[in-house]
Amino acid sequence: MADIFGLLVILVITWLIGSRIEKNHYKKIKEREIRLIKKPIITYGAKRFKTNKPIKSVELVTGEVVISGDYFKKFAADIKNFFGGRLTSYESVMDRGRREAILRMREKAGNANIIVNTKIESLMVNNIYHPQSVPQCAIIAYGTAITYDK
């Protein structure tokens, strides 16, 4: 009986704290996205890049993030998993992770004019043999940053 009350308390606490963290993260992501809106421009999947402009430098840029859902999200997803359907509680986690990785990559690119052939990859880094562990996802964004010679 005490277990169920303990569970409820944990759920409420993780929901409140998790929501707060997520809200703050989204706020920062949006601020940075607006700041970086001018450059560098990103292209996805264009393996051949053609330009008439003189190129100063070409380098690999990466942005990595490891992000985790809170206990509440995991619990909600676990319960929904029984009935099936979209696991909406993880959507915001994946979205934050992807946007954060891209932002880090763009920030790392610095004064580059364009990042071509951007790829995004993800992998689970939590212990899959420990079913109680909250899913943790590593997201890596990488691409080729090109800087024009002025």
Binding site: W15, I79, K80
Partner: peptide
């Protein structure tokens, strides 16, 4: 800039707490 601040299509506009209550009720 306006698009960034607007709705995010990748994240469902659902109330997770309410959703959880419904699924818990079903369970």
């Amino acid at each position: 800039a306006a698009l960034i601040q607007d709705d995010n299509i990748n994240v469902s506009k659902t109330n997770e707490g309410f959703n959880l209550l419904i699924f818990l009720g079903g369970l």
